[in-house]
């Protein structure tokens, strides 16, 4: 769907993107993760033809990306705004027409979305009458109104309350099911990794890693398991022998814990279960996979320490 090839961009002397390449496949939710200032927004702006790269090309469905492809893209920037004195409907009409819809189309689609989000009575409200969260919903509707085949959302959940975050997440999953491609950018990796199929990590203008979340986690898992149990912590420790190492523990109550255990040598999860059964009242056990945040820190920190 979108091929980003060797993109570099610098502002004055500062390098914002350094030879970044990646591929976004049709129908996937692609996460663009990285700390603030990594270069994510610059890359998104380049995709949207807002700024021009110093080097590299972007292909959209095989064609070199041009202004005409913008009507296939829905872009919700991180720093988004609305005209405060315009009504929700006039705003939708303005942005919808800019994206190639007719007035009739805009009105029909707006009806659908207002009804879906149960906000029909907002239609004639001025933006200044809406709360921040309400305005963000309107922004989201305006972004998807023209049913773009590629949706680019920069920090989409910032400012939303948990209920609306869930609403938007569900909407994105539905859109993916309809074959739409979605790029999510965030510095808050936990907020988006749950719904992303694949991610790219960007740090200090460079791409660090790209791939399926499950693959990345598999590759970087540390052979750790979590055990949730009732009983005595002393009994738990006594049950373990040198083949296991307690990495972390979380006290849930007086006699309720979650303990992270790392396997040593050739020990397997089965071995751990064997030594614990009968010693403690086990409630759950699962393999601990690293979060994207942990993977990112793992990838970045040694480099920074060595520097």
């Amino acid at each position: 769907m979108l091929e980003i090839q060797n993109i570099s961009k610098s502002f004055n002397q500062k390098i914002a993107l350094d030879d970044v390449s990646m591929t976004i496949n049709k129908g996937e939710i692609f996460g663009m993760l990285g700390p603030n200032g990594a270069g994510k927004t610059t890359l998104i702006r380049i995709i949207n033809k807002i700024i021009v790269p110093n080097k590299g090309v972007i292909r959209f469905n095989g064609d070199i990306m041009s202004q005409k492809h913008l009507s296939n893209i829905g872009y919700l920037p991180e720093e988004r705004g609305l005209y405060k004195n315009m009504t929700v409907e006039s705003h939708a009409l303005f942005l919808g027409q800019l994206r190639g819809l007719t007035k009739v189309d805009v009105k029909q689609k707006l009806d659908y979305w207002l009804e879906k989000f149960k906000i029909q009575n907002w239609r004639d409200k001025r933006i200044e009458e809406l709360s921040k969260g309400m305005a963000q919903k309107v922004q989201f509707i305006c972004t998807i109104l023209h049913e773009p085949s590629l949706l680019i959302l920069d920090e989409p959940f910032s400012g939303f309350d948990p209920i609306n975050i869930e609403l938007i997440k569900q909407e994105l999953i539905e859109m993916k099911a309809k074959g739409k491609t979605i790029i999510l950018s965030s510095h808050n990796m936990e907020s988006v990794e749950a719904i992303c199929d694949r991610v790219v990590l960007i740090h200090e203008s460079k791409k660090i890693i790209e791939g399926k979340i499950s693959t990345l986690q598999e590759e970087r898992k540390k052979n750790e398991y979590a055990i949730k149990f009732r009983g005595s912590m002393i009994a738990f420790v006594n049950a373990l022998w040198t083949g296991f190492e307690i990495v972390d523990k979380e006290i849930l109550g007086d006699d309720k814990f979650i303990v992270r255990v790392k396997m040593r040598g050739d020990n397997k999860f089965d071995d751990l279960l064997k030594v614990l059964i009968g010693q403690i009242n086990m409630e759950a056990a699962w393999e601990v996979l690293p979060s994207m945040q942990e993977i990112f820190i793992d990838l970045v920190q040694p480099k920074e320490i060595s520097e």
Partner: peptide, 17 residues
């Protein structure tokens, strides 16, 4: 004003500067 309320970036996603 469009710059400070940031709508400009939404617009630039549809039209050239």
């Amino acid at each position: 004003r469009e710059k400070s309320n940031r709508i400009v970036e939404v617009l630039l996603g549809c039209v050239s500067p």
